[in-house]
C-alpha cells in the first residue's frame, strides 16, 4: 500500500487514507506531522476544485474522509498544537433564511485553509452578527443566503454593521445561489464568491488588505 496520505486524500481514497493514518500513528508518527500531510491533501482537493476537476460532491466527500482522519489524530494531539493562524472569519446564514449546505462547505474550506472560523449557523439575527464582530474583532465576515429574502437581510445586516461603526474595519463577502454583482451593490458588501474556494480566496485577499 502507498504510504502517501496526502495523495490518498487528494484522490478521495477513503479506506486507504484511513488505513495509512492508523498505520502511521501505530508506528509512533508525530500526530501533528500526520495532520499536516492531510492538510496538504486537502490543498490539492481545493486546487482541483478551482480548476473544475472536482465538484461539490468531491469537497463534501473529502470533508467526510478528513473527519475520520481527524477522529484518529485528535486524541493524540497536544492541546492547542493545531491552533489556526490564518485570521478570524465570521460566517452566518442571514436572518430569515435557514439554508446551511453552501454555508457549511464554506466553513469547512475556510477551516481547512487555516482560518479561525466562527460559524454562527442559520437564520442569524442582525444584532448577533454585530455583537460577534465586536466580541472577536474578526476582520472578515461572510454572509450566506439561498433565498431572495436574503437580499434584504444581507443589506440590513451590513447597514447595522455600518451603524455600529464597524464597517471600516470589516470586509464583507456574500454568497448564495441567487447572488450576483447587482446584489453586491444592493447590499453594500465588498464582494461575492460563487463557491467555497472563491470564499477562501476572498478571505485571504481581505486578510492581506488589512
Amino acid at each position: 500500500m502507498a504510504k502517501d496520505l496526502a495523495k490518498a486524500l487528494a484522490d478521495l481514497k477513503e479506506d486507504e487514507a484511513v488505513a495509512i493514518v492508523k498505520e502511521k500513528l501505530d508506528a509512533g508518527a508525530d500526530p501533528m506531522g500526520v495532520l499536516n500531510e492531510a492538510g496538504k491533501g486537502m490543498e490539492v482537493v481545493g486546487t482541483r476544485f478551482s480548476k473544475g476537476v472536482y465538484f461539490i460532491p468531491d469537497l463534501v466527500y473529502s470533508g467526510e474522509i478528513l473527519k475520520r482522519v481527524n477522529e484518529l489524530i485528535k486524541p493524540k494531539l497536544k492541546a492547542g498544537s493545531d491552533k489556526k493562524t490564518g485570521g478570524k472569519v465570521i460566517i452566518a446564514t442571514v436572518a430569515g433564511d435557514i439554508h446551511d449546505i453552501g454555508k457549511d462547505i464554506v466553513v469547512f474550506m475556510l477551516d481547512v485553509s487555516g482560518f479561525e472560523v466562527y460559524d454562527m449557523g442559520v437564520d442569524v439575527p442582525i444584532q448577533k452578527i454585530v455583537d460577534k464582530i465586536k466580541e472577536t474583532g474578526a476582520p472578515v465576515v461572510g454572509l450566506s443566503g439561498f433565498l431572495t429574502l436574503a437580499y434584504d437581510a444581507m443589506k440590513q445586516t451590513i447597514d447595522a454593521i455600518k451603524a455600529a461603526g464597524l464597517r471600516e474595519k470589516t470586509k464583507i463577502m456574500i454568497g448564495g445561489g441567487q447572488i450576483t454583482p447587482e446584489i453586491v451593490k444592493y447590499t453594500g458588501a465588498d464582494n461575492f464568491g460563487k463557491d467555497a474556494i472563491e470564499a477562501v480566496a476572498l478571505a485571504k485577499k481581505f486578510m492581506v488588505a488589512k
Partner: peptide, 18 residues
Amino acid sequence: YAYPGHGVAKEHSYQCLE
C-alpha cells in the same frame, strides 16, 4: 419543512429542512 409560524417568520415562505 420550516413554514410560516413554524420555524420561519409569518412573513416568509416555507423552507426545506434537509
